[in-house]
Design a protein around this nucleic acid. Sequence first.
DNA 1: CTGAAAGCGCTAACAG
DNA 2: CTGTTAGCGCTTTCAG
Lengths: 334, 334
Amino acid sequence: MTERRHKRVTSVDIAKAAGVSQSTVSRALANDGRISEVTRREIKKIAARLGYTPNEMARSLQTRKSNMVGVIMADLQNPYYPAVLETMTQKIHAMGRQLLLLSVPAGLTVDEMLPSMLRYQVEGIVITSAVLSSRMHDHLRNLNTPVVLFNRSVESFFINSVCCENLVASRNVADLLVRGGSRRVAFIGGHVDTSTHRERRIGLQEGLRQHGLDIVSEDVGGNSYEGGYRAALKLLSATPRPDAIFCIADVMALGALDAARSELGLSVPGDVSIVGFDDIPVAAWPAYNLTTVRQPSESMVNKALSLLFEPKGSPPAAVRVPGELIIRGSARLG
Amino acid sequence: MTERRHKRVTSVDIAKAAGVSQSTVSRALANDGRISEVTRREIKKIAARLGYTPNEMARSLQTRKSNMVGVIMADLQNPYYPAVLETMTQKIHAMGRQLLLLSVPAGLTVDEMLPSMLRYQVEGIVITSAVLSSRMHDHLRNLNTPVVLFNRSVESFFINSVCCENLVASRNVADLLVRGGSRRVAFIGGHVDTSTHRERRIGLQEGLRQHGLDIVSEDVGGNSYEGGYRAALKLLSATPRPDAIFCIADVMALGALDAARSELGLSVPGDVSIVGFDDIPVAAWPAYNLTTVRQPSESMVNKALSLLFEPKGSPPAAVRVPGELIIRGSARLG
DNA sequence: CTGAAAGCGCTAACAG
DNA sequence: CTGTTAGCGCTTTCAG
């Protein structure tokens, strides 16, 4: 055993073992230019032999750069987000950074979670499915910590965000539905105070109005399966019954689909067309075969991270990526 | 605006503003006992006014305690894990700690990911669905960093782990199947070199042997929907056809179910019973209504975290939590 | 090319 | 109860 127990080996230990100064060790390991190849190699060898692990805390303290990025997820239970999180961790790791994760428990707000991250000097923060008070936003500006909102946009003040082209995509859904023969289109939203809810609702409405129609009834399902199920049950019990439902999240659409089929004995899309949003994996499975709008999570993550690490002083951007209509079997076609 | 831009406020700034020494500030903020209530209150007020955020890097460097725990997830795409991760983040946050997340990309091993976490002086590491080389394990012992394996066990050396009672649970599945009239039971595993695969396979086999039966055919599905689908297709094409399939992960069972129903036109459970493991949310949805074994993720997370923070020197433990058979509609009953 | 020395922001003795 | 001092382990001038 070459390592001593309970005492981590530091650059000083290496310096001693190599008979050089500690700063030389630091330079050698940092691949600093002005150092002889021999010394460097020797030092690296010793470091490896001693099982040296650089202390990033010390490094960060000195360089004022933690190399950590904070990620706050409000809705990990929504099957759309695991994939987002997975690509985030991998990209962040590939950039040589670490990811500090926080998930917002029901009843708490992002504002309350943020300070604990800030203590760790994160270099940037991405917030998914949630927003920030403008007070907190100001605070972050002072700290010079960039933020980007993922899947939420805010109009009241300038802040980075990356979202799907919700308006366009939802208008396309309206077109699809109407072309498929639907005339009584209902809407199941998530939470009324979110931008995704508002934008997708407006998009649908605008699209319908182009055809002289409007949303006939609506409800919210809180972006959960159960919520979608309940909302669909309610909307589909009305007379006359809607002949289509647009849900702003696949997971709600699946709930709606099950409510229609299993509980009400309706045929989908025969009696009612159902369209979702996200294109989560389950949507493609034959038991559901859900027509939906795909949100390109990978490219959204890429945009989000590059926004985060843009040169300081860049003006905040509201990036929009197009959503792709994925035609499957849950909506009638023209 | 009370805060200066681009320069974070430190305890020294507060000390100056309050006309006390920096260590007094430190004590006041740490709620150290021997300090007058007046000073403390005054200092806290100033800290709040200046928008002070303690620098955890500096703190950690001094105390040699980072308050961060590392979590390595190998299989975030498996719908069982998001819930696990969510409860982990929340518990860890509730303990006043932070969670450093790493996900293992295909082709990489945990061994390769670990060093980057270690630099951050994590206090402990939870590894889900993956194992550790014994070399790495030794290294962690030297660093005195506790590890716990979540959903994987290892027999070759002593290490903390928390798993489901795989053997018992799988034996119960065998009983259920046989009582339901099945005689030709097939098995779909994940990866042959994992403990969950082996244990659940043996459990099933033992259970069947009690009834004078054995596993009639088997395949692996890599713990993915597509893998389960393909494996089921293959197994169900044999003559004579299996009359039951036990899948070691719900997500594969759902694939198997769709393969049986949608592609082969079989009735489940009429022609073939299908049982999964995990009890992910989708399993309960009417379109699948999957009979399965519930892994109690919350209590598993609790055990894992308490194992991690057990007093130093406690002997490693292999915690087993019971799995609960959830009877739904995808397996025939006696 | 290498060493000495300062210091990042904090905690923790040690004095008083 | 409070101030002084000495580091934690590293990077980074500044000399040489």
